[in-house]
Amino acid sequence: MAHDLRLGVNIDHVATVRNARGSGYPDPVRAGVLAAEAGADGITAHLREDRRHITDDDIARLAATLTVPLNFEMAATQEMLAIALRHRPHAACIVPEKREERTTEGGIDAAGQQERLAPLVGQLREAGIRVSLFIEPDPRQIAAAIQLGAPVVELHTGRYAELHGVEPGDGAEELRRLTDAAALAAKNGIEVHAGHGLTYDNVGPIAAIPQVRELNIGHFLIGEALFTGLGEAVRRMRREMDAAR
């Protein structure tokens, strides 16, 4: 079934649990298959340079196994470019990466790194891989994405997620920034995705932004899966998203 608003499920933290014991389980590839069966439109996996969760073998098996699109999150490095070109995922999302961070802490500075990013974007596109840039909801970053020829941007919703629901009205300004950025990107022919820190409680206003075509959600869903099962967690998120449209 084609959805007006797609749900991409990030399975990185299934690998985090596996790696905590150095075992072969739980298997992130199995999680990807189960998420797809429950209604996920795609699967996202971030191969970090330090391999703290997803591994090279995971990417190879995901690329060979999934029947839904694989979104390969990658740092802007030659190593990750080579891996993307080897496996040819449906999509590659270029994200910032710092070894000391627990998780991705913000969007990539596309405006300040155009010279570095341009060759990567070009080579990925030439290989038939859909390129997205994970950016802040900032007009400067949208302008850089346009200049780089990126067909997709993923707007970082982390700040919105931190503020939402703390006090009445909290997060409203960040939601406005996201809404304005989505409209600006779409006006210039860029497909808009969004993600980071989204939960059942805060996903509605983001899902309601008409220009947003895809949400990528991971950590929360894997956490909920401990209590309800991954299939039910995905199905409920799908319902929350659909209700907002």
Rank of each mutant, 00 (worst) to 15 (best):
I11H: 02
D12S: 10
D12A: 09
D12E: 11
H13P: 02
V14G: 00
A15Y: 10
T16S: 03
T16N: 02
V17G: 04
V17R: 02
R18Q: 14
R18I: 11
R18N: 06
R18W: 14
N19M: 13
N19S: 11
A20G: 14
A20L: 14
G22I: 07
G22K: 05
S23R: 10
S23N: 07
G24T: 04
Y25P: 00
P26S: 12
P26D: 03
P26I: 00
P26Y: 12
D27L: 01
D27C: 01
D27Y: 06
D27R: 00
D27K: 01
P28F: 09
P28W: 08
V29H: 01
A31M: 15
G32V: 08
G32F: 13
G32A: 07
V33C: 01
V33F: 10
A36T: 12
E37A: 12
E37T: 09
E37P: 06
A38C: 06
G39P: 04
G39Q: 11
A40T: 01
A40V: 04
D41M: 06
T44C: 08
T44V: 13
A45P: 04
A45W: 06
H46C: 09
H46E: 02
L47W: 11
R48Q: 02
D50I: 10
D50N: 13
D50S: 11
R51T: 11
R51W: 10
I54K: 15
I54E: 04
T55C: 14
T55G: 14
D56A: 14
D56E: 15
D56Y: 15
R61W: 13
L62T: 02
A63V: 05
A63Q: 08
A63T: 03
A64G: 03
T65W: 10
T65M: 05
L66P: 03
T67S: 13
T67E: 13
L70A: 04
L70M: 13
L70N: 05
N71C: 09
F72G: 06
F72H: 13
F72D: 08
E73I: 09
E73W: 11
E73F: 12
A75K: 10
A76N: 06
T77P: 14
T77N: 15
T77S: 15
Q78G: 01
Q78P: 02
Q78A: 10
E79D: 15
M80A: 08
M80P: 00
L81C: 07
L81E: 00
A84C: 12
L85A: 01
R86M: 02
H87C: 00
R88S: 00
R88V: 00
P89I: 02
A92S: 06
C93A: 08
I94G: 00
I94C: 05
V95P: 01
V95A: 03
V95N: 08
E101F: 12
E101K: 07
E101Q: 12
E101P: 07
R102M: 14
T103E: 07
T103G: 12
T104E: 07
T104V: 04
E105F: 10
G107T: 07
D109G: 05
